[in-house]
Nucleic acid binder design. Structure first.
Lengths: 148, 148
DNA sequence: CACAATGTGGATGTCAATATCCACTTTCGA
DNA sequence: TCGAAAGTGGATATTGACATCCACATTGTG
């Protein structure tokens, strides 16, 4: 959970959130989010498959949010690129454990569960709206749409 | 955080907790915890450098817990093999962000912080003592020391 | 219609985490 | 004192995440 790829996906979605419902081409997203552009393409494709963004080809093409920011949870974004791996059976393969995790693995899985819950209960809109000196992905005071 | 190596370290420490304060040779730990033995060696070495276990060479050598289970937190074990990477500055390198994380990264770091706290507040003794049908690393009913 | 802008799909490269191997050192006990 | 039982340190795979590249398909515009 929470790999580099997830971080990239969250940045891209946050950036698209500013633009919503307009679209933005990949190279611009890459520049604003400081994600390597060729890799960002792959990430956006996964977000596309998950129905979170819509991708359009050709001139004037790009990506745009398919889900309104107040309906999109961070967990959906995370799961689109790298589903949270909860511990469901004993990682040692002990037969008698199975579904009933031992205290060690229960503890670990609980930590995952809490993280999952934290992301599930947070929408993109909340992230974008939160009052702060440091708006996501922007320099202070530049909390505006991309100007051409 | 919480890589395979961390999982291995926790298993090894849990196993040593059963034996404490006696020692156990690496091959036995490997067998019980189902960790590849050559790799377990490396993990134990890190735990040794951190002062969590003591390693003894030669005949009758092996590893043993250096810290009593009720004084050893899971976080110490995690940090010994793979320190938790908290987000302390803006990952995008935005100058105006710096120490003051944006809501997105604050959210992510909070999740890390909670996980850290969960592990800091749990001792090995608690894990081993928790009443359960599935004692850590053992088949049910076999919550006993390794019998030669 | 032709061309440039843009995304697509797949092949390939890079690197760190994971895992293995081996020659060497240390220790115990016969 | 010698040999077997351990751990040590370093070299070497293996693997998956991360990243790049390129030929191609699609779309808007002159």
């Amino acid at each position: 959970m929470l790999t580099q790829t997830v971080e990239y996906a969250l940045r891209a979605v946050a950036q698209l959130g500013y633009m919503a419902p307009e679209l933005m081409k990949t190279s611009d997203i890459a520049e604003r989010t400081k994600v390597p552009m060729p890799y960002l393409r792959k990430v956006l494709q996964k977000l596309g498959e998950a129905g979170i963004v819509t991708l359009t080809r050709g001139v004037q093409g790009g990506a745009k949010l398919q889900i309104p920011p107040d309906k999109l949870t961070l967990l959906e974004v995370v799961n689109a690129v790298e589903p949270v791996q909860r511990i469901r059976t004993c990682p040692l393969g002990l037969k008698t454990h199975g579904v009933r995790l031992c205290p060690l693995h229960r503890k670990i899985d609980n930590a995952f569960a809490e993280m999952e819950a934290a992301f599930r209960s947070t929408t993109l809109a909340e992230i974008l709206a939160e009052p702060t000196d440091s708006p996501p992905l922007c320099e202070s005071g530049k909390r505006v749409k991309l100007v051409e």
